[in-house]
Design a protein around this nucleic acid. Sequence first.
DNA 1: ATGACTCGCAACGCGAGA
Length: 256
Amino acid sequence: MLRIATWNVNSIKQRAGHVVEWAKRAEPDVILLQELKTTADAFPLMEIQAAGYTAEFVGQKSYNGVAILSRDTISDVRTALPGDDSDEQARYIEATTCGVRVASIYLPNGNPVGTEKFRYKLDWMRRLRAHAEDLLRREQPVVLGGDYNCAPADEDVYDPDAMADDALVQPETRKAFRALLHLGYTEAWGATHSERHVYSYWDYGAAFRNDDGLRIDHLLLSPQAADRLEKAEIDTTPRAWEKAADHTTVVCELRP
DNA sequence: ATGACTCGCAACGCGAGA
């Protein structure tokens, strides 16, 4: 079985210990990380390598930053989402590992709605759709994992009324997310679960204890990857740890 | 226990996160 995980770690320097500890327990072959919040020179590569993973990453000062960790070699790395050469935000990395084309995606938050930030989010989703379509032409397993900053339906939100004006649940956001699915991608957790109000993110403070969360971290599988989908799970274990990230891990398991 | 967030940053409050 091939296990691929996604995790928004909210600072890799703060969370390297959690990543190593969780990897030891969950034994994923590939981990897609978001919100590194550091430049590449300060990425804790030695610690990651000591845990048995190779790494490719793209970073920037203070914000964003994405990485691919793998137990196997990583090749043919792409470090930006095509479609806008003026976009300097470190939100996309894609490579081949374990026989799968994988991407780590940190989709823009987009708040507040009605501003340039929301327009940037929707344009980023349009670019992602165009590139995701190109990837399907490979007719190979593709896994696009990350923090999509989109709760696909009200069932993925603890309080839809309280979130109604948020960029993560806007009709345009959800439509752009569905457009990815319409291309032929399968959202791994949703395809294998019928439960509702299961989340991957909880705000700091009392939200986790009250289970006031959002399901915004997703793994999108090309048909060739979906053919092999054995199961998917949201592992809330690391969210309960001291000094936790606000997101937890989402994992899919692909048959050989 | 009345209420309680967490990052990075030439910071000592602020912007961003979602």
